[in-house]
Simulated scan of single mutants.
Amino acid sequence: MWAEKLGKQLGHPTQSVGGWLVSRLLVARNWVLEENAVQLCRIQPDDTVLELGHGPGLGLKSAAKLLTAHKGHLIGVDYSAYMHKEASERMKDLVASGKVTLHHCDVAAMPLEDNTADKVFHCNCYYFWPDLRKGATEIHRVMKPGGLMVTTLRLSNVAALAAKRVMPGENWRPEAYMTALRDSGFIDVRMEDRQLKYISFQAIYATASK
């Protein structure tokens, strides 16, 4: 039962003690993955960048610093009302200026026009999507032709949680996500092992082909 409850809070944090603990956990444990997802996207100053499942806003803050040109714009989406509220508070000045736009919505139904984003990144996110193909198709729709998508994860940690039944079903497996990306029109889909001084992690890349 505890595993199911933890999995629900990780996938959809609520304004509760459990949601607050998950939020603090994300701040403490996800910052390396968030920072590297941003860096691996090769963000340019005038890009339109989208973060999926932005959580408390760590990746948003990192990405915003790179969008120094007037046209540079950052968009974030999250299914959790609690995380949307947390990130909105963290990014309130940039939201007020129009540099950042945050949406409380499902990744599979984003209120964005076709061909909006130059770069997309996310971290510890796709495992909780009920339909990987639907999510990947929606990401492909909102990306510009040739746009790059990057997601980062620590596969050993994810596999350990899946073994304890914290992760639902088999969607946590990178192969399942990469297949959904290819089936949705992405090319150059690949996963790389990355090594920093203190941490090893994986990065999945995909390019939108249109």
Rank of each mutant, 00 (worst) to 15 (best):
A87D: 02
A87G: 06
S88V: 06
S88Y: 05
E89D: 11
E89M: 12
E89Y: 12
R90N: 11
R90D: 07
R90V: 11
M91N: 03
M91Y: 10
K92S: 15
D93G: 05
D93R: 09
D93A: 15
D93W: 07
D93I: 08
L94Q: 13
L94K: 13
V95Y: 00
V95L: 02
A96Q: 13
A96F: 02
S97D: 07
S97P: 02
G98T: 01
G98C: 02
K99M: 09
K99L: 07
V100L: 05
V100W: 02
V100Q: 00
V100H: 01
T101C: 10
T101E: 14
L102T: 06
H103N: 12
H103I: 07
H103P: 03
H104A: 04
C105W: 00
D106P: 03
D106F: 05
D106N: 09
A108Q: 11
A108M: 10
A109P: 01
A109H: 13
M110A: 05
P111L: 03
P111Y: 01
L112T: 02
L112S: 07
L112V: 13
E113S: 15
E113A: 15
E113D: 14
E113K: 12
D114M: 05
N115W: 11
N115G: 08
N115C: 13
N115L: 12
N115Q: 14
T116V: 15
T116D: 02
D118S: 07
V120M: 01
V120T: 02
F121L: 03
F121A: 02
H122T: 10
H122E: 06
C123V: 13
C123A: 14
N124M: 12
N124H: 04
N124C: 14
C125M: 13
C125P: 05
C125N: 03
C125Q: 01
Y126L: 11
Y126M: 13
Y126T: 09
Y127P: 10
Y127F: 15
Y127V: 09
Y127G: 02
Y127K: 09
W129P: 04
W129R: 08
P130F: 04
P130Y: 08
D131W: 05
D131Q: 11
D131K: 05
R133G: 11
R133S: 15
R133F: 14
G135K: 06
G135M: 08
A136F: 00
T137S: 14
T137K: 06
T137M: 11
E138T: 01
E138M: 01
